Computed example of a mutant assay.
Amino acid sequence: MPRSISIYLGCLSLFCIFSLFLFNLTATAAKEKVIYEAEEITDINELYERARNGISDEPIKNQNLPNWELTEKETEIRMNKHMSEIEEYATNQLLSVKKVGDVEVKEYAATVFADIDLKEHSFEENDSFVSILGSTNRSKWDDSVSVRAYSTIYFTESTYRGMDYVRLDKVTGGWQRSDTSVSLSNRKVVLGCSGTPVGSQTTTRNPTTNSFSYTTPSTWKRVTAVQSIVGVNTTVTLKRGTSSQWTLKLTNNY
């Protein structure tokens, strides 16, 4: 790496650390003023309707599109958004806006969904068809959905002197099943918050039921919103009978 670039990156890192120090000092000393508060929507069907209709309280800066991946065990064929015409769908809630001295603090809840149809179709004998179902012409829950994966990330976005910071506070989610012939196992939840100046903060959980809720450790720090990743990745194994098996991954990142 050229010396000039190395010096620039070093100065940028020091600036972020110093700015974060001032941010923490200001936030600790100042009193909190509530500007806006809203009651959180937690009903999954209502959240799904919002997502299906593209309803969000406001756009979130730096938010990534939700992404899913379905891998079949036997063929290792990966199905993702680049191989289908289905669009991912999500909804964001602005839960509160507060002023702490010179710091503006916004609390968000961002929810994403993926519907999976694992029903067999008679294209050819012993041929099964798997598809991801998007938002078109779908309302709430119906029998064509074998499994629905969903997750919500709760995070705080703070702005101080023109610089944005973000912290992951909590993640929730799970899997809903309408097809009793499909079993779920090997559930894994990876939540993380990575960025300048603290680097990577991640933890892995293995829920034993089809729903989860995890609060991030109190030791986790805020990171600058630029070039940061905050969110949750979930993985579950879907199995029908003795031979048909898939792995479903759903990513919900800011």
Rank of each mutant, 00 (worst) to 15 (best):
S128Y: 15
Q93K: 07
S185Q: 06
I44W: 05
V166L: 06
A27V: 07
S144L: 10
N92P: 05
Y154V: 00
A38H: 14
I77L: 11
T28L: 11
G173A: 07
I41D: 01
I60S: 02
E85H: 13
Q245M: 05
L9V: 05
T204S: 11
R187V: 01
P217I: 02
T75L: 03
G195N: 04
E40Q: 15
N80Y: 10
T156L: 09
T247H: 00
T242G: 02
S178F: 11
L238N: 02
S151F: 01
Y214K: 03
L20M: 14
V145I: 15
Y108R: 03
F18S: 13
V97A: 06
R52A: 15
A90T: 10
T247P: 01
D117W: 01
S13T: 14
T180N: 15
V223D: 01
T242L: 06
S56A: 09
E76G: 05
G192H: 13
R187M: 15
V97C: 06
N45P: 00
P59R: 00
T42V: 15
S211R: 12
V97E: 14
I132Y: 00
G134W: 08
N62K: 13
Y165G: 03
E157H: 12
S122I: 09
R222K: 15
A90G: 03
S194A: 12
N45F: 13
T203N: 09
T159D: 05
A30I: 08
E69G: 03
Q93W: 06
K170S: 04
S128E: 06
S200G: 01
L14F: 11
T234L: 04
V112C: 13
F113V: 08
N206S: 11
I77H: 12
E39G: 08
V103L: 09
Y150N: 02
V182C: 04
K249G: 01
Y165I: 04
W68Q: 03
S228K: 03
P207K: 07
S13P: 01
I55Q: 09
R187Q: 12
F15T: 03
A114G: 03
N64R: 14
E120W: 00
A27Y: 13
G101A: 04
D164W: 07
L65H: 10
T71I: 15
S139R: 08
P66H: 09
M1C: 07
N210Q: 11
R78V: 12
G173T: 04
E157A: 13
R148V: 08
Y8S: 05
L20K: 10
T159R: 15
E124D: 13
L168K: 04
F212M: 03
S96Y: 09
C16S: 12
T91D: 03
E87D: 13
L9W: 12
L94C: 07
I86S: 07
S218I: 05
V223K: 03
F15D: 02
E74V: 06
N53S: 09
T75D: 06
N186G: 05
N210P: 07
S128F: 15
N80K: 04
N62S: 11
W220V: 02
I55M: 08
K140S: 12
S56K: 08
